[in-house]
Design a protein around this nucleic acid. Structure first.
Lengths: 253, 253
DNA sequence: CGACATGTTGAAGCGGTTCAAGTAGGGTGG
DNA sequence: CCACCCTACTTGAACCGCTTCAACATGTCG
């Protein structure tokens, strides 16, 4: 309701409708009138520098965020100060939906690189969800997808060997990126080896060794943070892990 | 719309309002008119025998279920047939909320003992959630709580030693049960050692050994499936794990 | 009461961590 | 623009927590 609102309005009006991401953030076939409503709720785009926090654990839940570019890690902090990464968020994904439970964020989100997000005030989103049935369903859907993702990771952590975990992680990245229109077989890891290790419950050294092995086996090309998937099928096989054996001399093909 | 509907109506009418669990399932302060609406959505109570499935992974999502008595395990099944338990559900909890994402259940639910549930057809619940704003928020809240729970487990699996995992698991059970009005320090494990091991990513033997240790240390009393927590503070200390050392001769006290 | 699942306990083996040392980038100040 | 430093990463070798294997004990159920 301030005067600079006027300046933003014209800019805001076209946000969702023209945004190349809206179909990704909220793919639900809203009517154009509904899109207008959504537009009015979404705050202007904002930029987050590398290593800066989007929100911190314990903070009251103000907004959720749609990632336009860049990436984030979300993590818990336990009593002794160590962190547990619970996921990485990529462009086109929504972040901050956790913490609706008690109105506080239950994890912190930190930018892995300079990133850009759309801020969506949560209260207004929730009340809007009552007006737009499709939006409510979409929110529930996004949450349940997060549950699925978490549970898949639980399975990896609970019973898969390190090789399978890393293969599955890389494959997951590849799939999510290609869903968003990026290349499936060539991408940059915006997170450090340490972050990957933390997420997957392994030591940094193990990540390093496995990447080397994958490269030696001709499955990947690893150049620092740049990954090229050379044999997607092999990677999928490793990620499945039930195929058969796990030979040391897997020079198949 | 069949004639036996008439028979059920009077019974149904009082379901939620008189149900001792409604405040637990849906603690949101609905108006009495809203409760009527909810009542009309909830199907009659049904019973599930031990080892029977409430729903299976892949099935279309028909309903979610409020557990009135008994308990369930929910689990994924991976390609090679092995299962990964992702959680146990206790009385007063809602089950089946996963799978809203793609309209299919993403896990199976199997009764650990003879149990009783209220079936809540999902579609009608979602449309009702539009009429009753508090209900929408409650659904989102429940989902985000599940995310929290899963993420806590992820932390356990990723970086905590087996002792901490089991302590934390028992403590979690204790808290959930006491929230529901059951005793916090004395309860029965409805799940097998194998199920606990599966959830926590450990071998059955390790569960067995740790329970023995906990008993030797005077923290628990273990009689087959019956657990008595003798020193809740010690158990909490073990669950936190950052306290200090992890001595072999922990005959403290 | 016998049979089978579930749970316990002991001993050996291994996957992955931890420790240690060295290498390579990337950013900053001179 | 290079020298420097610090962090991130890599690689090797020893160690250990936990699993796996094996045998036995205990309940449970037809």
């Amino acid at each position: 309701m301030t005067d600079n609102q006027v300046i933003n309005l014209s800019e805001l009006k076209s946000h969702c409708q023209n945004c190349s991401l809206y179909a990704l953030c909220l793919p639900m076939g809203l009517e154009s009138g509904d899109l207008d409503k959504l537009d009015q709720v979404i705050k202007r785009r904002q930029s987050v520098n590398k290593n800066n926090y989007l929100f911190r654990i314990g903070e009251p839940l103000k907004s959720v965020y749609a990632i336009r570019s860049g990436s984030f890690k979300t993590f818990l902090t336990n009593p002794d100060g160590t962190e547990q990464i619970v996921g990485f968020s990529l462009p086109g994904e929504l972040i901050g939906m956790d913490g609706i439970g008690d109105g506080r964020h239950n994890c912190s989100a930190r930018a892995l690189e300079t990133s850009s997000v759309c801020e969506i005030p949560y209260e207004r989103l929730e009340s809007l969800a009552i007006e737009i049935p499709g939006l409510q369903h979409q929110l529930l859907k996004l949450m349940s997808q997060e549950i699925q993702q978490d549970q898949n990771l639980m399975m990896l952590l609970a019973q898969m060997p390190t090789e399978t975990r890393l293969a599955s992680f890389l494959l997951g990245l590849s799939r999510r990126l290609s869903q968003r229109g990026y290349a499936a077989t060539e991408f940059n890891l915006s997170m450090s080896r340490g972050d990957i290790a933390n997420l997957l419950g392994m030591a940094v050294e193990t990540i390093s060794r496995l990447l080397t092995h994958f490269q030696d086996d001709g499955i990947l090309r690893v150049e620092r943070k740049h990954i090229t998937v050379l044999q997607l099928d092999k990677l999928e096989e490793l990620a499945t892990h039930c195929a058969s054996h796990h030979p040391n001399n897997s020079n198949i093909g």
